[in-house]
Every structure is written in structure tokens, then in C-alpha cells.
Amino acid sequence: MEASVRAILFYVFLVFVVRIVGRRPGKQITPFEFVLVFFMGGLALTAMVGDDASLTNAFIQILTVALAHFCIAMARTKSRWLARLLDGTPLILLENGQWRSETLSKMRIQDDDVMAQARDQGIATLDKIEIAILERNGQISIIEGTK
């Protein structure tokens, strides 16, 4: 019974902390924010099932991580360099019918992945794509050409 109460308590607490720290739609979550979510979840899990059963200690750890995230997020808004370091930058995968092979290889993306995204947007052939971009959040954006 105590484990169930702890689980509910931490769930409510984490939802509260994440709401305070900030929110974005799921497709806009950056790697920086994924780390926050998983790390805070790990701290809560450790407090629920680990040797240290102190709720106070777990709350302090989670609040500390949330505060650190908030401070870094604020610094990110003031520094483009820090934002690029933490979130990355959009990368061009295809431009004017030319694949950027080095970028595709480095990001471990196949040209078929780009074409699948294009087909999802109703673009059937390569010659109708003006540019394909790997966004900071991992999504592939396809911009149709005007030809």
C-alpha cells in the first residue's frame, strides 16, 4: 500500500513540477527537455524503490533538477550559442534535388525516411521537393517546390 501511495504522490509532484518548468507540444520537445523528463522520472523511481526511502530527499533532488533546468532554459533564451549547443540546429538533408549525403550519414537517416515523410505530406516524387530539413526536435520538414 505504501508503494502505491508513493507512486501517486510522485506522479502528482512530477506533473506539478513539469507544469511549472514549462511545456511544449510533444513534437517540439528538444533533446534537452527529454533529458529533464527522464532524469526527474529516474529520481522519483529511485526514491520509490531504492534504498533511500526519504521523500524529503527525493523532493529536494527533483526540485533542484527543475531549478537547474529553469536556469539553463532562461540562459538559453539569452544566448544563441547555448541554445545551439543544447538543442542543436536544423540540418538540410535535401536541397534542389541534391542529397546531402554526409549529413544523412552523420544523422543516420536514410533517403527513404525523407521520402516517407514527403509521401505523408502528399508529395510523391523527389523533383517536387525544394528542401528537406531535419529539425532540432528530430522531425523532418519537407518544403514543396514551386516548379
Rank of each mutant, 00 (worst) to 15 (best):
F32Y: 15
D113I: 08
L14S: 04
Q61Y: 06
G50A: 10
V35P: 10
L126D: 00
M40Y: 02
P31W: 06
L126E: 04
A68G: 10
K106R: 15
R80Y: 11
I123D: 00
P25S: 13
M107P: 03
R108P: 01
L55W: 07
M115S: 05
M115I: 11
L93T: 13
I62T: 09
L104S: 06
L126R: 12
E144C: 00
D111C: 04
F70K: 06
K27C: 01
F59I: 15
K147T: 04
Q98F: 08
L36W: 03
E130C: 00
E95N: 09
I133T: 14
S141Q: 01
F39D: 01
I109E: 07
H69L: 03
D127W: 02
L93F: 11
M48P: 09
M115N: 08
K27Y: 14
G22P: 07
R100A: 11
L86C: 14
L63K: 05
Q121Y: 10
G88C: 07
F39V: 04
G122M: 04
L134Y: 06
R108H: 09
S141G: 05
H69V: 05
I123A: 00
A44Y: 08
I60L: 10
D87F: 09
Q117R: 15
V12C: 15
I72G: 01
L55F: 10
